[in-house]
């Protein structure tokens, strides 16, 4: 049986993790490679690295980091942030990333999704959607959540699937960091409307939130950052909790 995936997300700047992390037995909490290795050992099913830098110099630091991570861990990982072209994606995939995640550039230029899917295969292309609940529904935001677009999350998800996206990483901006649980209505609606897997993101704060997302929606995976980095909840705890509730996990 296909397992539900638990995915820690690491924010990267200049080749290092940004948020301070409180992780057992780590000499340098900011070292992304060491953190990746620790998560892989703990049973993380995949990792996501989000680069929050922009300059060319820092970009080469990211490529170098991807090479080191690819050599160090034996589980799949996705890299996102600042990917604007096939060349950007190619540099990361050549360095060893299994998948790339695109966001703002795809909204500005939707055919980029098709171009990437045709070049690398759909399985490599994760479309990240940042959505905020407004009076008329869930609206897509870009540029790290700073800029609203005219698109509804549902329409954009369906279009991205048609264009060849292989997975959707769906974040509720309302829930992100709030630790009050995932946006069940948003995730439920979109995961039911598309055939590709949906990774739920934003809002994980307690073990029960992981149970909710997998019992109330068709999400294939759940992503979280802070609770794992700060040691509030560990990956083995999440896995055991879900196992006890007959939710299939590795």
């Amino acid at each position: 049986m296909l397992k539900k995936r638990i995915i820690p997300c690491l924010d990267i700047r200049d080749g290092r993790t940004v948020k301070g992390v409180q992780f057992i037995n780590l000499r340098d909490a900011g070292d992304a490679v060491e953190l990746a290795r620790a998560y892989a050992q703990q049973g993380a099913d995949e990792l996501v690295f989000l680069d929050i830098t922009a300059t060319v110099e820092q970009r080469s630091a990211l490529i170098h980091l991807v090479e080191k991570v690819a050599a160090a861990i034996h589980i799949p990982f996705t890299v996102g942030g600042g990917i604007n072209s096939v060349a950007d994606a190619s540099a990361l995939i050549q360095a060893g990333a299994d998948k790339v995640s695109i966001n703002s550039a795809a909204l500005k230029n939707p055919p980029l999704i098709r171009e990437l899917a045709n070049t690398f295969g759909s399985q490599c292309i994760v479309l990240a959607i940042d959505a905020r609940r407004e009076t008329d529904g869930w609206r897509v935001y870009v540029h790290g959540g700073r800029t609203p677009t005219s698109r509804s999350a549902l329409d954009w998800a369906k279009e991205a699937e048609q264009l060849g996206a292989g997975e959707i990483l769906l974040t509720s901006m309302n829930h992100d960091g709030a630790k009050t649980g995932f946006a069940l209505d948003l995730i439920r609606e979109i995961a039911a409307a598309v055939q590709i897997p949906v990774i739920a993101s934003g809002g994980a704060g307690q073990l029960v939130h992981f149970e909710e997302i997998f019992t109330h929606t068709q999400a294939s995976a759940a992503l979280a950052a802070g609770i794992f980095h700060f040691g509030e909840i560990s990956i083995p705890e999440v896995k055991q909790f879900l196992k006890n509730r007959q939710i299939p996990v590795r």
Binding site: M1, L2, Q195, I196, P197
Partner: peptide, 12 residues
């Protein structure tokens, strides 16, 4: 198309 495609993730 009877379930999510692609088949992505860990399976036994």
């Amino acid at each position: 198309p009877l379930d999510k495609v692609p088949h992505v993730g860990w399976d036994n």
